[in-house]
Write a protein that binds this DNA or RNA. Structure first.
Lengths: 319, 319
DNA sequence: TTGTATGCGTTATCAT
DNA sequence: ATGATAACGCATACAA
């Protein structure tokens, strides 16, 4: 592979001049520029990007740590991230963490070792301290409802969204309300739990453990919940469900088994994924594509700030 | 940022020795190793990965060009790719091309400029020549049914899968068969078209342009097709549909409008996505996760070969 | 077992 | 307007 020195020699100029034409710098005569271009052509020259990275100390790469990709919540975020990265001329390197701290650490190390200029964490298993520890090595933005003052977060306010959903159900006359959650111990899940408990307290209803369904991420999980729901002695009349995917699985399975939505049980999803419209699911729309774009904006600034995006109720026929 | 020379000086050894302990090379006394480790600790040293890349001439990065990510076909492939990349200690850089030749070119250029050691193309708008042109710069594997002898392909045999689907419908007594396609001019779409025409000829039925539905990628597209279907003067009794997503949209909308599946129209999806089970969709299962893993295996070998993965009929209640 | 010197390919500083 | 030279940080052939 021909390098910049070969080109310089071939063109009868210095490497500096070659570098100048490469980077469209001023102060190079048309004559020399042509000579350089001719030499590049002849030698089949192209720049080695690693050398540029080393020399410049930046890679125009943004790392994205995501638990798994084949999940509409994350892939929608990623779509927004990719769109904005394109605009800002960044490329993306992708770390599938599967909620393993060890894999999240790899992404953080990549930032430290200058593989990427910044890091986006879409969800995490590691504690805040682990993340905080790496902030000195470059901008990090987390996609979570912010309650950490030192780490920039861009997200929807999951706490408020969930509380809004609860109040909506209450206003519709429901008092026996259950809910589904993605995984225990996630930040967003904790916020939902908190909102749930507070609203329950508000209407003076007890917390019933068997009305809380854990590990709900996929359509299949929704089906599973439907079956668990049916085997309940006492059933809630309303359910707030992790996502539209899970809500869809729930609705399809429940109706197959003769449960009527919303007559027997009202359900509310989150995201406003196309599947929600197809299944006539009332849902709380989260602007995930926008959040994704915002994440890239934030991480590409020297001092990222936090931002919270609004949600919106989309009323359909499941409540 | 402390570099390897600083560590060497601090430890009172040469850079070579430091490099040796960094890379677990033999021939370094325990004493010096300790001194080096101590120095690294004191200076807060860590390796700069770009320097390693430049020096070694490899990045352990694999590029993945994908039209868009928020689509279950691609995100399932990507999930397999990421899983296998993890095993083989590769990271992934992600190029969202949106079927723009210009963006695909960027991914190819990244290979040429040594940003990535190999490139995976999940689907493309560019011609074979454009891809072929870059093969000299590193391994490229395309996720398509192979008919190009020079470019390695790993995929499901979409032609055979579609033909199999046609024969299945025919065997079920259908003679008026239509189909949905993702986009015209895609390799896989062309193969499906070919299989469709051949089987039509086989049963001596005419090709009816209004029974072929283009641009079908999402649930919404399925709904649209259902409406187009209903406005048809003469309707086919069976439909082969791009993917389970589209088939799901079709079924939901059609049934909402009083069309019975499979009594009025039999439908067959592809992929065996969870939504297919939820909606009782007969489908042709494609081992996309495996294909994804295989893509990484192939691209990480010096001379990638092609491979075709088998499909499997999953009979449910939509045919 | 250890160190010296050179290569990797580019950008940036500074002098001219 | 142009060029010599020093970074950038690491790996490695070769010598010792």
């Amino acid at each position: 592979m021909a390098n910049i020195r070969d080109v310089a020699k071939q063109a009868g100029v210095s490497v500096t001049t070659v570098s100048r034409v490469l980077n469209d710098h001023p102060y190079v005569t048309e004559e020399k520029r042509l000579a350089v271009e001719k030499a590049m052509e002849e030698l089949g020259y192209y720049q080695n990007i690693n050398a540029i990275h080393l020399s410049k100390g930046e890679t125009r790469l943004i790392g994205v740590a995501v638990p798994f990709i084949n999940h509409s919540y994350f892939s929608t975020l990623l779509n927004g991230i990719a769109d904005q990265a394109l605009v800002r001329d960044y490329n993306l390197v992708f770390y599938q963490t599967n909620y393993q701290e060890q894999e999240e650490r790899k992404a953080l190390e990549a930032l430290k070792r200058k593989q990427v200029d910044g890091l986006l964490i879409l969800s995490r298993a590691s504690g805040w301290e682990a993340v905080d520890e790496y902030q000195e090595f470059g901008p990090i933005v987390v996609c979570e409802s912010s309650n950490h003052t030192r780490i920039p977060c861009v997200s929807v306010d999951h706490y408020e969204a969930f509380r809004f959903g609860m109040r909506y159900m209450i206003q519709k006359g429901h008092r026996h309300i259950g809910y589904c959650i993605g995984r225990m111990n996630g930040t967003n899940s904790n916020l939902r739990e908190m909102a749930y408990c507070e609203e329950l307290e508000f209407i003076e209803e007890p917390y019933r453990k068997d009305w809380v369904f854990n590990n709900c991420l996929t359509i299949e999980d929704g089906k599973r919940v439907a079956n668990e729901y049916m085997s309940l002695e006492e059933r809630p009349s309303a359910l707030l469900i992790t996502s539209d995917q899970v809500a869809a699985g729930f609705r399809m399975e429940a109706e197959k088994q003769g449960i009527r939505v919303p007559a027997d049980v009202a359900i509310l999803g989150f995201d406003n994924h196309p599947i929600a419209e197809a299944l006539d699911l009332t849902t709380i729309e989260l602007p995930l594509h926008e959040v994704g774009m915002s994440l890239v904006e934030k991480v590409s600034s020297k001092n990222p700030t936090s931002a919270i995006y609004p949600f919106e109720l989309v009323e359909r026929g499941s409540v």
